[in-house]
Design a protein around this nucleic acid. Structure first.
Lengths: 253, 253
DNA sequence: CGAGGTCTTGAAGACGATCAACAAACGTGG
DNA sequence: CCACGTTTGTTGATCGTCTTCAAGACCTCG
């Protein structure tokens, strides 16, 4: 649990700035819109690693923005097997879709200590009534989530375990860099190997062996929660990674 | 190619009715909104099976609604392997996301003879400026696509090939039934086994064997393009299928 | 320094891919 | 209506990938 009281931001920058920075990657966010976002955000809550922040079948009355820590959307099957369908880093909405989907089709679990800020659904509804451009940016935000889902499907269906792993590293590096949380080809990566297994749909043992493979190829190193990309060009090539699906290009939307 | 000239609807019902019926599953669509949709839809185009209707990297100026036939979103890798990330049936927007994503991150291929109707992006933009409720329904439509993606990820990562196959049948039956294109537990299914392989991320041979398995279990039969569900209860159980993720419940959105 | 969590490795076996051939169904023209 | 070619489906054999079970090593942090 973070030391400061809930509701008091830890970082110097205000809560809405993180979200604005993220949306600003898609298109220019006006001052007015930043103000609207600011007023829509309520206080924050903290969670420890492995806690469910939102549970499957919940009908939340607000959506949450991840402010600190890593989170994942996950589904657990009858036999106890778990599959993660998305990874979230600070600046991401973890459940914006619950605004219209209403009922959660999965849970969202904290992968490390997390802090989330709430945006009530009635505020989102007001935005959708009064702020068409901002609404389109929020919509786009969920469309990028879907594009990431599609990329995972392709990777799971048709890439080797090694390339799938490499894809994951590429995706996370680009996403983190887009919100200034990574640079110089390295980043903090708080996931354990069992969690990565649930991301890739593989067994823990196989993840470990896959990692050994791509370490042997000198593509990445991963020690004590830090991932370093040793050769970005070759990693991209090996993963068949094309970042354009993330829509990180500022244009009128 | 369908016999009638392009632009002339084949079925008795007007083009926009199909879309309105689909959105009407989510929430009540008003007369006014139906009128707005009607005015936003342009003429139709026809395609033969296996033609690309939208290509990866395209920047379309309109989105398309599938009026007749089956389509799939697909991505082809360097080595020629193909993965399908979504299947579409009449009433579906095949590329609504291109309105905001701008650049296609995959192509959309006709799986059978298809007819699509166009909704220009400037019309969608006008809707997003003037019709907040309709905008939310269109947004929701893309959110359901994403929920389907997540379900596929879970199935690919953690279900047996047999259960994955069963999931697919369940999903398609429920979706078809929701637009009155299936009833009595049977439906026309124009996909060939190689295509199903690209959906499930398996090899053609393994799809064939998987099919033999679940035929042996008396769960479904599939002959001459017709799928019959022999025991819905057991199929749902076997597939661990829960249709709520499709949001087919009319409530205020 | 000790204990829990995390990572690593070995061995055996299941699942799915690939290669190769053949059978059945379908559609078309003679 | 049948013959023929093409497409789609089926099966066998072999091989590689990934899972499972099990044990042991390495951290890291109190």
């Amino acid at each position: 649990m973070s030391p400061e009281a809930d509701g008091a931001p830890a970082s110097k920058q205000p809560l809405h700035a993180l979200l604005a920075r993220k949306l600003n990657n898609f298109d220019v966010v006006t001052e007015t819109e930043v103000g609207v976002l600011e007023k829509a955000i309520r206080g924050t809550r903290s969670f420890e690693a492995n806690q469910d922040m939102v549970s499957a079948d919940d009908r939340p009355s607000y959506s949450s923005i991840l402010v600190e820590g890593w989170a994942a959307r996950s589904k657990t099957l009858e036999n106890g097997a778990r599959q993660i369908t998305a990874i979230h880093v600070p600046g991401d909405f973890i459940d914006l879709h619950s605004f219209l989907l209403r009922k959660m089709d999965h849970s969202v679990v904290a992968l490390s200590a997390c802090r989330i800020a709430a945006m009530p659904h009635d505020r989102l509804r007001a935005i959708s009534e009064e702020q068409p451009h901002l609404t389109r940016l929020l919509w786009l935000n969920t469309l990028v989530d879907a594009a990431i889902h599609r990329n995972w499907i392709v990777a799971m269906g048709r890439l080797s375990a090694e390339s799938q792993m490499a894809q994951l590293v590429c995706e996370l590096y680009v996403r983190l860099a887009s919100v200034d949380l990574a640079r110089d080809y390295e980043f903090e990566f708080p996931l354990t190997q069992p969690v990565v297994a649930d991301v890739l749909g593989l067994s823990l043992v196989h993840v470990n062996r896959t990692l050994r493979e791509i370490r042997g190829l000198k593509l990445i190193s991963w020690r004590s929660r830090m991932v370093k990309i040793l050769d970005w060009e070759r990693l991209v090539e090996f993963a068949q990674f094309d970042p354009t699906y993330l829509s990180l290009r500022r244009e009128p939307r």
